[in-house]
Simulated scan of single mutants.
Amino acid sequence: MGAPGSGAVVQPCARCGSRWAVQGAPMHWCPRCRGVLLSPGPVDAPPERRNYRWVARPPGRRPRPGGARPPVPAPGGTPGYPDMPRWGLRDASPEPARQERGRLARLADRVAGLLVLTAVLFALAAVAEIGRYLILLRNRTRLIPQALLVVSDVSLYLLAGFALLTALVTAVALVGWLIRVRRAAYAAAGERDPWPVPMLLCGCLIPVVNLLWPGVFLTELARRTDPRALRAVRIWWCAWILDGVLVVAALCWHAADSLQARADGVMLSAWTDLAAAAVALLSLWVVRRCEGRDLRGRKRQPQRWVPATGPAAVLIEPVHRTGEAAGRAPEAEVGDDRAATGAAPGTAEQEEVMAK
């Protein structure tokens, strides 16, 4: 398109800036870029006489009557604020949708506290068993008061019962924790846990079967989350199997009829309770290692070794001979130093030792 002559009426394009001469009815769209054409106006009209003008106003503010402009305030100092300004565009992040959590998930959140409680109860039960064994030893030569026997029986049965009940609840909580952590580990890799939830429950809660499958499940989890946790899983697995063997041996030992066998069964029960307390603490260790925490629940800081790129810096530069002194014997060099300084032989030897 040629340049329009003086006094021609044109329509500027709001997109590409081209000016199109008006011939007849005004156009709405630019033939070049399909942009919006502004209203017609003289091509040589000054900006204040054009029939359009861009005015920027805040939202909701109406134009002033008569086109009067507001007075411009005198420039002042740099604005200051007593605290962090809160004005501006702020996009509030959407709140995550609430997910209904079952009892198993809520129980899995308390697995650490349940493990500590289980270890404490089994340790107290072991102390009660040891107290019963000492009473039996005392009863060989002297009679035991009836009140002491009642206290021993009540403490033993109560602590053993509470320990077993807490251990059962803790086992269910551990299974819930295992399901949640395995699901998160496989989801991070874009996969799905190959073991269904009923299989995890059966493999961890059915007696005798649960001596094998929990170690398999934890080994798969450790290989995906932190391979360094495999050592903790293997130690826990050995302790878990040993505790199962001790439980079976204690049950069989209590079936004996002789007094000595029953006394030995009490001591074996004490060792079984101590092993159960140790397994509870080892379980807490495995849980923390798989979560990337230490035994107290603090976040573990990774230790990184950086290879050295340059040679080791020499702290003490060795003494090198220069000039004619390089060809002399060490004795002659020492003699020359003594003659030059005029010091006594003993003093030179002391200075040499201090220099070394």
Rank of each mutant, 00 (worst) to 15 (best):
C30I: 00
P40F: 01
V55L: 13
M27E: 07
R61D: 06
P42S: 01
L38T: 15
G41W: 06
P42M: 07
R64I: 00
W54Y: 08
R32K: 04
V43Y: 00
L38S: 05
P46Y: 05
P63L: 10
H28W: 13
H28S: 13
P46T: 10
P47K: 07
R57W: 06
G60Y: 03
A56M: 12
V36L: 15
V36D: 05
A56R: 12
M27P: 01
M27L: 14
E48F: 13
P63C: 07
P59E: 10
P63R: 02
A45D: 06
C33P: 00
C33R: 07
R62Q: 11
R34C: 12
R49T: 09
H28Q: 07
G41A: 15
P40K: 04
M27T: 02
P59V: 14
P63Y: 05
P59T: 09
E48C: 07
W54N: 09
H28N: 13
R64Y: 05
A56I: 14
V43H: 05
P31K: 01
L37H: 00
P58W: 08
S39D: 05
A45Y: 01
V36Y: 12
G35A: 02
R62P: 04
S39Y: 08
G41Y: 03
R49Q: 15
V36F: 11
S39M: 12
R62T: 09
R61P: 00
R61W: 09
G60N: 11
A45N: 09
W29E: 01
R61C: 02
P63Q: 04
S39G: 08
P31F: 02
W29K: 04
A45C: 10
Y52D: 14
R64G: 06
E48I: 12
R57V: 07
P46W: 04
P31A: 13
Y52S: 10
D44W: 00
P47N: 06
G41E: 13
P42T: 02
G60W: 11
V43E: 05
R53T: 09
R32I: 14
P63H: 05
P40D: 05
P42K: 00
Y52Q: 10
C30R: 02
R64L: 09
V43T: 00
P47H: 07
R32G: 04
P59W: 11
P59G: 10
A45L: 06
P31N: 03
P59S: 08
C30E: 01
P46D: 15
R62G: 04
G35R: 00
P40W: 00
R62F: 03
H28M: 08
P46A: 12
V43D: 02
C30T: 01
N51D: 07
R57N: 11
P46Q: 06
H28C: 03
E48D: 14
H28F: 06
P47V: 14
P47E: 09
P40Q: 05
R64H: 09
R34S: 09
R61L: 13
W29A: 02
C33T: 09
E48S: 13
R50H: 14
V43A: 14
Y52K: 02
A56F: 11
P58Q: 11
R50W: 04
L38C: 08
C33G: 06
R62N: 05
M27I: 04
